[in-house]
Design a binder for these strands. Sequence first.
DNA 1: CCTTGCCTCATGTGTAGACATAACGTTATC
DNA 2: GATAACGTTATGTCTACACATGAGGCAAGG
Lengths: 244, 244
Amino acid sequence: MDREGKTVSDAAESGEKISFRDVRAEILRRITIGPWGPGTLLPGEVELAQEFGCSRTTINRAMREISDLGLVDRRRKAGTRVRTTPLRAARFEMPIVRAEIERTGASYRYALVQRGVEPAPDWLRAQMNLTPKDRVLHVVCVHYAGGAAFQLEDRWINLAALPQAEAEEFSRTGPNEWLIATVPFSEVEVSFTATGADALVAAHLDHQPGDPVFIVERATWWQGAAITFVRMSYRKGYRMTTRY
Amino acid sequence: MDREGKTVSDAAESGEKISFRDVRAEILRRITIGPWGPGTLLPGEVELAQEFGCSRTTINRAMREISDLGLVDRRRKAGTRVRTTPLRAARFEMPIVRAEIERTGASYRYALVQRGVEPAPDWLRAQMNLTPKDRVLHVVCVHYAGGAAFQLEDRWINLAALPQAEAEEFSRTGPNEWLIATVPFSEVEVSFTATGADALVAAHLDHQPGDPVFIVERATWWQGAAITFVRMSYRKGYRMTTRY
DNA sequence: CCTTGCCTCATGTGTAGACATAACGTTATC
DNA sequence: GATAACGTTATGTCTACACATGAGGCAAGG
C-alpha cells in the first residue's frame, strides 16, 4: 500500500490538494498502527472532510477503497466501523494457460487427449446443477511449456447451454480459448486444493500415482445456467503467487 | 454480475436516473456478448455520457470498476481498449484461521508445538532478504477445528524488525493473532502450492508422510523490511473457495 | 529522413452541492 | 407495554464543472 511518499501533514503544509490516496494512506495508518484499533467507530465523512481539509467526495472514495479491502464495515446511519477480524482480500489474476506459459518465455504446445459426448456423472450433475437428461462434452487435454507438461485440463461443457460446442474439435487449440472467445459468463466459482495424482494425471504430467498435485477447479455460469466445469491439475512444484 | 434487474433502456424510458451500475452492466454486456469484442477501442467517456444520458463521472466510475475487473485497459489519451486476453481477477478473502473455523460453527482450539530463537536458515534468508546475523523467532503451532487438526502453522518472525516478539510466549494464542493486532504491513506475497507431507506435518495433521497437502505461504513486509514468513499446511481435503 | 518540441485530447482526480436510502432511536398510538 | 410511525443522520450516488497528467500525433527545424 503505502507507496505514496508524502504524509498528510506534508501535503497540508505545502498547501497542495489532498488526494484520496493521502487520505487512504492516513486512515490505513490509523487503523493498523494508529489509534483506530479493531471495533472502533470512525468519525463520519463530514467530520473527516473537515479534518483533512478536503471534500466529502474524496473521503468517500478513500473509505470505499478501504472497505473494498475488507478492513472496515460501512452501514448507512450506523457509520464506519473497523472490523474485528480484518479479512484482507487478495486479488488473484487468472490468465489463460497459454498466456501464463508464454509470459515466462517458454514455448507453448497443446495436445488433445480425449474428447467425447457423455452423460453427466453424478458428481458433475450435483456440481453444475444439471438434469439427468443433460448431455455434456468431456474434453481432456494437456498444455506444455517448453516441451514439458505443464497443466492437465479436464473439462466438461454443458451442451444444453452451449450446443455449438459439439461442433468443435479442439484438436489444435484448447476449449479454454474457444470458450473465452465464444461465451460470456456472469458467475464463477473457483476453488483450490491438493490431491494425490490419479492414473490420468500421473500419465500425462509425468508423476507417480499418489504424488501431490495442485488443483484448481472452476465452475462457470451464465444467467443461472451452468456453462462449464474445469479441473486443472498442475505439474509438480507449481506455485501460484500474488503480491499486494 | 448481471444482478441489476433493469436494462439501460428501461431506466432511460422511465426517466429514472442512470446509475453507474446500469452503465457497468450495459458495458459489460457489450464487451461479453455485444459488439465490443477483444481489441475494440471503446468510445470516450464524454461520448458515452451523452449516449447514456448521464454525467461523465458516472461513466468514469463504471469504467474504473470494469478496469479493476481486468477486462479493459485504460490509458490517457489512448482511450479504453478491451483486453485481448481478459484476465478476470478473483478476490480471495483470507480471514485468520480462528475466524474461518468459528464461522463454520466448529469450536476452535490452539496448541503450541515448538518455539525458539534460531539463526535463519539459508532458504529463509533468501526468502525474507535477511542478513546472516539476523535472528529469527521460529514458532510451530496447530489450529484445531472441532477436535481435529485443521492447520499447521510454521512461522518465522524477523527479530531485527520486531524485537518485541521475543517476549511473547504464544502459549495460549497463535502468533497470527498477535501479529495482526501488533504490526501493520505494507506488502504481502502469497503463494499456493501442493506438496507431500513431511514428518512434522504428518504427525500433527494426522497424515501419512507423502500425503498431498495444500500449502499457503505468506511473506509480509513493512516499509521494505521483512516482518514474517509463514507456511500453513491444511488438513486433507481442505478446499479454498471463492465466488465472483 | 530523423529528431525535437508543442498541441491536443482522453482519462484521472478534485470541488461543492443535491437528493436518495437505510437504519437507529424516539415518539405516538393502540 | 407492545407496536407502529416518523424524524434524524450517515452513507450512497449523481451532477456539473475544473484542472492535472500523460501520451499520441503533427509540425518545424536540423
